[in-house]
């Protein structure tokens, strides 16, 4: 699926899978990547938001902040034992 449609797309990797995303702003990019990650984890794109949760993260650079953001989502996904749409 083209990246233009959802703002993210998957690419092949023998060990795992990759997500490429684009956004007009840094915030949008973070959101698109989070959507991509959620789709991978939940195997379902039609999830509805049920719960809001504030997350505060700091990092020395945008790339490390992005990593921390995705790691945070992964943790909450795994610790919550289920699929949620976060953003």
């Amino acid at each position: 699926m083209a990246i233009e449609e959802k703002g993210y797309a998957f690419f092949d990797h023998t060990a795992d899978i990759g997500i490429r995303a684009q956004g007009a702003t840094l915030a949008e990019l973070f959101v698109k990547l989070a959507h991509g990650l959620t789709e991978l984890l939940a195997e379902d794109t039609d999830l509805k938001p049920r719960q809001a949760k504030a997350i505060q993260l700091t990092a020395p650079a945008a790339a490390s902040l992005l990593l921390a953001w995705l790691q945070e989502l992964l943790f909450w996904f795994a610790a919550g034992h289920g699929a949620r749409r976060y953003v």
């Binding site: 023998t14 060990a15 899978i17």
Partner: peptide
């Protein structure tokens, strides 16, 4: 050892 990606 994998030879094919998961998506493929």
């Amino acid at each position: 050892g994998r030879v094919m990606s998961r998506s493929e």
